[in-house]
Amino acid sequence: MEQLSINHISKRFGRQLVLDDVSFTLAPAKIYGLLGRNGAGKSTLLNIITNRIFPTSGTVKLGDLDTNNNDDALGKMFLMGEANLYPKRTSIRRTFDLANEAYGQFNYQTAARQLQEFGLDDQQHVNDLSTGQRTIAKLVLALNVDADYILMDEPVLGLDATHRDLFYKELLKSYQAKPRTFVLSTHLIEEVAQLVEHVVIIDQHKVIADDQVQHLLDLAHTVSGPAKLVDEYTAGLRVLASENLGNIKTAYLLDDLDDQRVIPDQVKLGHYDLQHLFIYLTSGGEHNND
């Protein structure tokens, strides 16, 4: 399997810049999170990667080959999207057959088991399904298509907690049975934080973080204590946000702590999670509560 590289992709719709010089690389057989607030440009990006729409500039390459109009390369990528492109009376079974014709080797057996676990029947028509059921039909399709890169746009849209749970479990099962790359594009960060190995965060149409989850969390420190001491300790470090409560200030850092600096007794260090990191990174200072 070859890596998929997104190189300097920009996209304009009329006057509006939707993606601004976006670059990152997806490695084979890894689970990624593509995170961003609503309207950040995630769906547009996924549609560009899979050649459904064209970028204004930039390229997408699988290995050394440009994927644009390259059927071989595009046959290794599958996008589970929001748009429903099937004609009216299309059964779930028919969507599997179509995927089998396009990609080959569709895993009918696992798909049948999963449909049953989710309480669906492959003779049901896609257009008759509720939002949540339609998501399930698409997920089961995506989990069983034979492709090296499976991109999922809002994979848990409309699913209740039980079904989300079942999906995460089936995703890991599928990944372990046949390691390939999954990209989960979502704003439900808490739920996927443990599932994804690497995240790409998009904000204001640009990539603002592209890193291993564990590495980001290692840098995510809280420093709290008397405001003056916290300010002294965090001087020169990257502070994303801070909060004051009485005389106590808490600073949220995204940086290595300096081993040389002495931590005063009244100052406490801690960690915060990916969800909060995302909020502080993407809120552009809205959460500074000074």
């Binding site: 479990k169 443990q194 994804v196 190995e197």
Partner: peptide, 14 residues
């Protein structure tokens, strides 16, 4: 690893 990963919803690498 497989069992724990699926049961706890944690990436197998972790």
């Amino acid at each position: 690893t497989t069992q724990l990963s699926q049961q706890l919803h944690i990436n197998p690498a972790t």
